[in-house]
Design a protein around this nucleic acid. Structure first.
Lengths: 240, 240
DNA sequence: TTGACTCAAAGTGTCGACAATTTAAAGCTC
DNA sequence: GAGCTTTAAATTGTCGACACTTTGAGTCAA
């Protein structure tokens, strides 16, 4: 494990709320909790064997991450991502990550290149979509960390889970498309790495932007799948 | 008031916590609550005549906005901004706002130009630093809203108060510098407006980036003021 | 069958309380 | 007086409770 350049955990309060966040986040991204499902505090508290206080804080955190949505009445639901949401997340990623690449290029190291190369190699040998996604996110996070900007990292992390939700959701819809679009991704990674290693900030930023643009091109619209809600908001869901 | 293109308040839960956030935020930015001061929940609850629950939620929100910091022990303090923080915020703004300008340029309207022009005119007639700052932030927020991207807007808003904290803090330190650096800002605004109105995304993005870079150039370091903490963390402060 | 109305069940916002932990002061030794 | 130890105050994390609001099923009239 080479130099993870920036650690991001300056704040770490409570403990129980943290566990609730982790579990719910995982359930939402995996689709166990489908979009549109209501998340009632008493039910969740019972499920986690806690009181409502930690659950409440967890929901606030998940709202901040864009995974759930507060309604005006106060009720909380798993967020439904539309095609427009998909585009918005893409643009936000481009904004943050191309700046990250710009700064990262200026302080790039051989160790960083090595890390990215190993990551790409593992991507080429990946056997499942899930594994591929995990590696892809890992790579991008590494670049953002290399920018050594806590704000940039925090902003990126705050949309990270929405992005992963998009990814997972799309995967579930397009098993048929399989790996094809992801090969494009892998070749794009090589271009980005070359730009980073060359130490040219402008080029790195431009390549990163182009790469994200391309890798998120195969959106539901491009694939001709659903229209508005990425997945039909599953009304049928019973917790506990 | 022309088309405020994007409204950003889809979620709006609690009410008491909201009031606490507003008051504390204002006190922190104005310097009434100086950097480093500890914010204890019981004392704040007493001050606001509420229980700890709303205060707690408010502190979480302020942490998210970067105005306060949680320590590992759980204690909360008003955040101390360093020179590096200043640079980080600048870069984050450049990332978000140049993308915003790029998208805004594509959907620019005469009404938008009119709004910005009125804003610039008011800036030229502004008589206080505070007023000038307020107008400057208003202008930039308008551009971000014109991008019609909820994520971009949310990300921008999440660092907005840190930026205002920088501004206010710097103003308090450099009353002497007065308006000079802000004239640069005003002329930069005209360039940005021209690019936006021309409808060329690349140019708009580039001009916005250059403008922010320039307007945040007059940092404490450039002015040769303090080194690390932007302001000496005032240890002397008694609440209530 | 449809539609408005009623009313109980459920949910949120807020509160005060308690144990565990941390902080800061008082006390003691040298 | 300086430094370490003890002790009391303060603070956090979590809990259960209550009032008020929303939701939704069931009822009744048309």
């Amino acid at each position: 494990m080479p130099d993870q350049p920036q650690d991001s955990a300056p704040a770490q309060r409570k403990n129980l709320a943290r566990e609730v966040v982790l579990t719910l986040r995982s359930d939402i991204i995996s689709g166990t909790l489908p979009p549109g499902v209501a998340l009632a505090e008493p039910a969740l508290a019972k499920k986690f064997g806690s009181s409502r206080a930690p659950v409440r804080e967890a929901l606030i955190e998940l709202e901040r991450e864009g995974l759930v949505q507060f309604e005006a009445t106060g009720r909380t639901r798993v967020r439904t991502l539309t095609e427009q949401d998909f585009d918005e997340i893409r643009d936000a990623r481009i904004a943050l990550e191309s700046m990250a690449a710009r700064r990262a290029a200026a302080r790039w190291t051989p160790a960083a290149s090595e890390f990215i190369e190993r990551n790409i190699a593992r991507q080429e040998n990946a056997s499942t979509l899930a594994e591929l996604s995990r590696l892809d996110v890992e790579l991008h996070e590494y670049v953002v960390r290399m920018a050594a900007n806590q704000r940039l990292l925090a902003l990126w992390q705050s949309i990270r889970w929405q992005f992963e939700m998009c990814l997972a959701s799309t995967h579930r819809l397009q098993q048929k498309m399989a790996f094809k679009p992801l090969q494009i991704t892998v070749s794009g990674h090589r271009l980005v790495l070359a730009a980073l290693a060359s130490g040219k900030p402008d080029v790195a930023a431009q390549k990163m932007a182009a790469h994200i643009e391309g890798s998120m091109e195969w959106s539901p619209s491009a694939a001709g799948v659903e229209e508005h809600p990425l997945e039909r908001g599953a009304a049928a869901f019973s917790h506990s």
